[in-house]
Nucleic acid binder design. Structure first.
Lengths: 195, 195
DNA sequence: TGTACATCAGTGAACGCGCGTTCACTGATGTAC
DNA sequence: TGTACATCAGTGAACGCGCGTTCACTGATGTAC
């Protein structure tokens, strides 16, 4: 690969990084192509040398950001296994730190409502990533000896995403902290007495 | 009150009804003032005789739609009490019927991500309505003999909203039905063995 | 190795469009005498 | 009861603005001989 192609590849990564930040902070409609490109140190026109449309960028960014977020969360659970791993991930996900710093976290709470109205391309990207996340959680729940571990994993993911999105929407109210704590406890209780 | 004031009041209700439908179907950014007014049988300009800004309309509509949705759900649980009431509400909320007909349901799954970025006015409206919904659910959980009933209520609400929003975003994938079912079962298990 | 031509990532201005909001206006309703 | 004036809900066109996308152009990199 020549120097030209390498430069292009690096530009593409800067675009995805910029889009990742903006998507987490402002959602899909709030992340304009012009602002994404500005964040990547370029001007609007260049965008279409990298992506055929905004929808395509959103699909790719969602995939990228979800994988990144999943890796960060897994790292925060460290060497734990089974129920302890799931509890550690839930604690990190449903933390004030995560609520107050969208740009470093999971892109879902900021985009979930909008994804439902996006092209199939975007929804398929989400479906694949959610499927993998559910598999990862289900594995730990199985270690913990739970039945129907995949269904439990999907319910735990729903509670985490719903709880964090709700806590963000309620910021400024006493309910916000309460929702985070309530969801954390709820998940912990479901796993009480498991290894 | 004269005929003029009555007419105005009826216009206001038509605006709120139109905004309610559009908010549930297209979210906040997708419900334009012009389209809301068209749905109410009027032209754009008249809007500002009823509301000082779009944010104000959104706050009022959210309140109105959340109350309406709460009443519908309560009706679907009928005369049930305690754990049975909560299970019936969760079944109705996390149904394919509700997932596939946003316009007749809860406005939260379609707007949650966006509300976090709205004015304090909108977020306060949400906080009040969520507070009341939590109180209503907590009452039934207390009847069922659960400890920390208010926290459990907030967690159940988070799971319902998160699960339905996720199921809508995943529409077209096999995961969509699975998420609905998983969240329903998860809530039922939490209440297993309660009256 | 040096020269001529081809490629194409990125620029910057422009496109049509829909947004929230403003405003001069109209005409039916309400009030004063 | 009848007439003259005031009010104000709603109209329809316009405002400035930001959106996603297009396009003629540029200049550095790559290729051919």
């Amino acid at each position: 690969m020549g120097a030209k192609a390498e430069r292009k590849e690096r530009s593409r990564e800067r675009i995805l990084a910029s889009a990742g930040t903006l998507l987490r902070e402002k959602g899909i409609s709030g992340a304009s192509v012009a602002e994404v490109m500005e964040g990547a140190g370029m001007t609007v026109g260049g965008f279409y040398a990298h992506f055929p449309s905004k929808a395509s960028l959103v699909a790719e960014t969602l995939r990228d950001a979800l994988r990144g977020s999943r890796a960060t969360l897994a790292a925060s659970a460290g060497e734990r296994r089974g129920a302890e791993w799931v509890k550690a991930v839930a604690r990190a996900y449903l933390s004030r730190q995560h609520r107050d710093n969208p740009r470093d976290g999971c892109p879902l709470p900021a985009t979930l409502s909008e994804v439902a109205r996006e092209d199939a391309e975007v929804r398929e990207a989400l479906a694949e990533e959610i499927g993998e996340a559910a598999t990862e959680v289900a594995m730990r729940l199985e270690e913990a000896g739970l039945d129907d571990s995949r269904d439990e994993a999907l319910a735990v993911l729903s509670t985490m995403v719903g709880g964090l999105a709700l806590a963000r929407a309620l910021k400024g109210s006493a309910l916000s902290d309460r929702v985070l704590l309530a969801c954390r406890r709820h998940i912990e209780r479901r796993l009480a007495g498991r290894e």
